[in-house]
Write a protein that binds this DNA or RNA. Structure first.
Lengths: 215, 215
DNA sequence: ATGCTTGGATAGTGACACTCTCCAACGAGG
DNA sequence: CCTCGTTGGAGAGTGTCACTATCCAAGCAT
């Protein structure tokens, strides 16, 4: 198929596809003549994944390129590919070490992970995941705003996520080949985020109505 | 306190504070002379909330203004203020009704909410919450990408969020006055999102290591 | 052969969150 | 009293980002 057809089938304008090609988010098509290329189903699938990452996941173009590169990296095993891909997802600003609130955040985060029994980073010698910095920053911001949260407050959130992670991985294991599994894992990590957040808001609305709501 | 001191205490540049004043995210200070104003602790707290919304929550300036306006609206009760405030939070693009996948998303979402027993929108006659559209869009995108999710797949996520919503509201009820509660609810809704997402990613990494990881 | 269409390159757009530059009015030190 | 740095206010400018519009020469189709 040609550019125009790829565009029609994906709902993405030719101009945007050209932009993605230029940015390396899509591999170039098979050259047919000096001025024409042929695209296939792989391009279409990849294009849809790119759109999902960027539009739904809010992933910047540069990060999306890294994510895709990690997915395709033949030198890594399944775990490493997934880790590398999730690594490249946006994770907000790094903790500001000059801020005393960051110290609080770090202590709370460490205590929480300890309590949850997750063998994460600082003590484990492994490189610290970006998600860890994300957690520290968030706790620090809460404390700076006067909403201190203790490990006890946070633990239920950790337990809930632990459970969902098992569900997520079960979903991923439905897919046969490691390639499909890794692609699925990234797609599900990113695309379930809005599902999670919207369900939380709906659940809060429901619970708030139950507690305070007359109507 | 003057602009310079407000800036020093909050860590936000005077130029940015002036910008927020201009945009109506901060109320003007008490005028002392024709060219000087006095700010107080309320300004400082509000400024920190604004920063948290924008930097941590990724809320656009225009939405933040609406959120703050809803918080301060004297005509609404606690529920309505909270609803209005959360309403203004970013919620991604509205579902594309021309896309057949949207139909799938809508059916799945409705079935899920039915199954969860949440008396949400379409059938209830109430205006549909933006979070509902967010959910439909997310499910539609998953299905378009070839990752169909059934109500059974999603139910555990709903149950988990139901439980967390109770925890959230318990936290909110620690605060005495309705004003504080509403402010807390918005802050916690927004600021716990990165906590949730980072915990999920850490939990996934942990679970993935457990299942596939040799080290 | 002539009038689209294609792939490729370059430049432009619009939204956004600041950030810079001016300016006249203060206000504290000498 | 007179500087001289500071203040609040207003407008224009900056950098980033994700596109989008315009050209162009080389096909292909009729």
């Amino acid at each position: 198929m040609r550019l125009a057809e790829l565009s029609a089938r994906s709902g993405v304008s030719t101009a945007t596809i050209k932009y993605y090609l230029r940015e390396g988010l899509l591999p170039p098509g098979r050259r047919v003549t000096a001025t024409q290329s042929e695209y296939d189903g792989d391009h279409l699938r990849r294009l849809r994944l790119v759109r999902a990452l960027i539009q739904v996941g809010g992933v910047p173009v540069a990060s999306a390129r890294e994510v895709l590169a990690a997915l395709a990296d033949e030198d890594l095993d399944r775990n490493e590919r997934l880790g590398r891909a999730v690594w490249s997802l946006p994770h907000g600003p790094a903790p500001d070490e000059d801020d005393p609130a960051t110290e609080v955040g770090r202590r709370t985060a460490d205590a929480l992970l300890e309590q949850l029994g997750w063998g994460h980073g600082p003590a484990s010698g492994e490189p610290v995941a970006p998600a860890y910095g994300m957690l520290v920053t968030a706790i620090a911001t809460l404390s700076r705003l006067g909403y201190p949260c203790s490990t006890e407050d946070l633990e239920p959130y950790g337990r809930a996520m632990e459970q969902l992670a098992r569900t997520d991985l079960d979903l991923v294991e439905r897919y046969g080949t490691p390639e499909e599994q890794v692609a699925a894992a990234v797609a599900l990590t990113v695309l379930y985020e809005p599902v999670l957040l919207s369900l939380r808001r709906l659940a809060e609305a429901e619970e708030s109505r139950r507690r305070f709501g007359g109507k």
